[in-house]
Nucleic acid binder design. Structure first.
Lengths: 355, 355
DNA sequence: CTGAAAGCGCTTACAG
DNA sequence: CTGAAAGCGCTTACAG
């Protein structure tokens, strides 16, 4: 009986094989059992003799056999895969989030399909289609412009979806979001506390939820400090350095320049910073600068950037954990708000009156 | 005959359905044909009546039917998926590469499994296993410590693999690499041309191929300029800002400080820069600084960083294109070398003799 | 052009 | 505990 042969013999059997076994049946033949038993042994079912199960597993292992996920999921109706849609994986915030998602996915035996949707609507459609065809068990959508037209498509899919920092208010049930209003208020308060009164805001594109909320926090802090809001101090970029630089130029052109600028994100702060430096002014001596995100690089800037830390990785993990709960059929609270943390570095300084 | 009903009627039929069709058979029933014909119509086989095929497709479309990738790949033995292993997706270089991979994958109808292998060997094993189980058609490994122990596992998989900037020389057939030696030589020449003689090198960990090659390029440029190599000027970090900062401190502690530093990558340059600034010196007035990568952020630093641009995204695309060729069974050249491009910004300046 | 049939590699009642 | 059988949703010869 093959079962009683030594590992060495098993290897010999293997050596005779033209190629490594690709199905449970071949393992069954090697082990002298039915393929049902192999299946059971591999899945650690109690419905196999312990010893026999171990032998089977050893043989499978030595042969380097791997069960086909496709075949398995066809019958179990669980693919153990999830889809992650991002606008751009090259965005450092997104990359951090994906890293967190991947960590818990890997740990929990899930594989992740990554798809860049970019700004291309046709591509978004292809992405969703591919997720559907692969029968992903769930989806997380990150920092996306998901909205009006995208929502119904996703809803039709009948799989759990969690949104992370979604940029459009939508009727999706589950989302993980940074506490934008609170964090922005705190960041702006910090500037107020330093004596600034002319505080500008460089936002993202109008209409994005994060922008709206961060702007609201900024306004709230001004209001509670009794500082009247000056609309000329609120300008918009697009969340990237270039456009933020343009926005900064507008501020610099003002008769009454701001003494501090709160930026939608670190990338915007970077663009603003570049423009400030180019115009011969200095941060923080002439203008204080605050960002949002706390990208990996922000602490290494010169001066290191004061910013609101978003725990990107943890937010990703949290989104994935939530998704797994939904997949498991557990109901949960609708929205998860994650607090930001103000990190004070050297890009902000007390406002000194110029005589 | 169902086929002749208007879309409206089809919708009505659909409306009666409890849930959207999940298999070809259900479409077949709706269309009044065999499921074989549905399969053919959906695959645009010429073996179906044109009109009938169109009707079938319309019905499938209206129902939001999506063929099961698992079922399909079970029979075709092609999963139309590829696996991408990265050490860390949060590394901006890696993110850029993945973006390029994803672009062409998406375009060509492939889905990508993304896996972070990190530095955890157990996790690497899990990643490879999951790729095997999903029967990926190919794999690209990015900027990884792939080597000694990892190689045999991957080779056993019998699928095409392309390595991108792999950090260990290995027997894998296909790789996409930046032309490290040439690019580093050019970068160092630039410093020499500016009059620098005491030029330091802050490397990655010893033993990584990229580091070895970049160091070689640096050495070559010194040699051709007749500058004797001073071993105290070659120090090692780990490719991240923190360790590079430590390395920079060693250089700063030297009796004869360098007047220029060539760094393994932009992240290292960032760490070195931070340390230089903290010690009261200035870039480039006191010390010129050159990086490698040209990360998105590098042009926004103050001063903007002189560096070697790696076309990360194109390298990713190239790797994916190569992989697709391999999957298609085409043979190709073994190694693809991509030239780097020296981008001169303001972190480098002529060396002025201090009187 | 069309459909019935076999089979891809699994899992899981079902009957011993 | 064990194996034969059915079936997951497809594709593709095969015979009309």
């Amino acid at each position: 009986m093959v079962l009683n042969k030594s590992p060495l013999t098993t290897c010999a059997v293997l050596a005779e094989m033209p190629t490594k076994p690709t199905s449970i049946k071949e393992i069954a033949k090697l082990a002298g059992v039915s393929h049902s038993s192999v299946s059971r042994a591999l899945r650690h079912s109690p419905l196999v003799n312990r010893e026999k199960a171990e032998q089977i597993r050893r043989i499978a292992d030595e042969c380097g056999y791997r069960p086909s996920a496709a075949a398995r999921s066809l019958v179990t109706r669980r693919s153990h895969t999830i889809g992650v849609v991002v606008t751009s994986i090259a965005d450092p915030f997104v990359a951090g989030v994906v890293s967190g998602i991947e960590d818990v996915a890997n740990e929990r035996g899930y594989s992740v399909f990554l798809a860049n949707s970019g700004v291309d609507a046709a591509r978004e459609v292809r992405v969703v289609r591919s997720f559907e065809e692969h029968r992903v068990d769930g989806i997380v959508v990150t920092a996306s412009r998901v909205g009006a037209l995208y929502v119904p498509v996703l809803e039709q899919m009948q799989v759990p979806i969690v949104l992370l920092n979604n940029q459009h208010p939508s009727q999706f049930a589950y989302s993980v979001m940074i506490a934008n209003v609170e964090a922005s208020r705190e960041a702006t308060r910090h500037l107020v506390a330093l004596g600034h009164r002319r505080i500008a805001y460089i936002g993202d594109r109008l209409g994005y939820q994060s922008d709206t909320e961060r702007f609201a926090g900024y306004r709230a802090a001004l209001e509670e400090a009794g500082v009247e809001f000056d609309p000329t101090l609120a300008v918009h970029g697009d969340g990237k350095p270039e456009a933020a630089g343009e926005a900064m130029s507008k501020l610099l052109a003002l008769a009454l320049q701001p003494t501090a600028v709160f930026c939608y994100n670190d990338l915007s702060a970077l663009g603003a910073f570049r423009r400030i430096a180019d115009s011969g002014l200095r941060v923080p001596e002439d203008i204080s600068l605050v960002g949002f995100d706390d990208l990996y690089l922000s602490r290494y800037l010169d001066p290191p950037l004061t910013t609101v830390r978003q725990p990107m990785r943890q937010m990703g993990s949290l989104a994935m954990t939530t998704l797994l709960r939904l997949i498991a059929g557990e109901g949960l609270a609708q929205d998860i708000k994650v607090p930001g943390e103000l990190i004070i570095r050297r890009s902000t300084a007390p406002h000194e009156e110029h005589p």
